[in-house]
């Protein structure tokens, strides 16, 4: 049997104030490991402390897949997203999602950043938050607008990464149609306000901003349940 961490905090952040947050430490017979402050990290997210603990199992797996330093590097993120180390390293959407998860912009995703970013994709998170995240995602050059050439670039990237076969004329038509619908003031770019209206009128465009997996985290990671039972026995 391997080294199992001892967890001391089991309460939901919804039942405790932030000031009561207790740093979590872990000890095992093999090594001493500093665990994140699960309670503080869960606060302000739709996740319970138990769910954050379960997601820590996932985080550890991803963050130690290539460089074993407990941080998710872009290469590790790509491996997790595309399920293959041989897949090309460049991917427009993968790179954009990584950059948004890397909130400090220091080239790695820390556990707190991982949880806060994933919380946007929780099915219970308000649509407004999902729309705001999606806007930042699609605003490729971070100009505060989704521009026509950015949208075309995304469509072409999607076609490149999928089996969809669409002619260049059809791509132009798709982009034109989208701007007809979303660019209300006809200035050739979609601003945040136009985006908010557009996503309210067309909520299906935010479908990729919800991950049903996040509703049932502890069922997906049964190893966490084993850890917890050991902890409570302690």
């Amino acid at each position: 049997m391997g080294c199992l961490p001892t967890k001391h905090v089991r309460d939901s952040p919804r039942s405790l104030g932030v000031h009561e947050a207790v740093a979590v430490s872990a000890e095992s017979s093999c090594e001493k490991v500093d665990l994140p402050d699960f309670l503080n990290i869960a606060t302000g997210t739709p996740f319970t402390v138990s769910e954050v603990e379960a997601l820590y199992d996932l985080f550890r797996k991803i963050s130690n897949s290539v460089i074993k330093d407990g941080l998710i590097h872009k290469e590790e993120f790509h491996v997790a997203l595309f399920r293959s180390k041989s897949k090309k390293k460049q991917n427009l959407f993968g790179d954009r999602v990584f950059d948004l998860f890397d909130q400090k912009g220091n080239g790695v995703i820390e556990f707190g950043e991982f949880i806060r970013s994933l919380s946007v994709f929780h099915p219970d998170t308000p649509e407004e938050q999902k729309a705001a995240f999606a806007f930042r995602l699609y605003d490729l050059r971070q100009t505060g607008f989704i521009e026509r050439h950015e949208l075309k670039e995304m469509v072409l990237a999607l076609l490149d990464e999928s089996n969809l076969d669409i002619t260049s004329d059809a791509v132009e038509m798709i982009v034109d149609t989208t701007f007809d619908q979303a660019d209300v003031n006809r200035d050739g770019r979609i601003d945040q306000e136009e985006w908010n209206v557009f996503t309210k009128d067309n909520p299906y465009v935010l479908r990729n901003m919800s991950l049903p997996y996040l509703k049932d985290i502890t069922m997906i990671f049964p190893s966490f349940v084993i850890h917890s039972e050991v902890s409570e026995a302690d």
């Binding site: 996932l58 797996k61 997203l81 399920r83 969809l164 038509m173 067309n202 299906y204």
Partner: peptide, 25 residues
């Protein structure tokens, strides 16, 4: 028909983000 969709619908429907894969590692 993809050509009749708007671009964001196309991206959304085709799992452009691949985040589901995080949970299948």
């Amino acid at each position: 028909q993809p050509a009749s969709m708007n671009a964001f619908e196309l991206i959304s429907l085709n799992r452009g983000l691949n985040l589901d894969n995080l949970f299948e590692t």
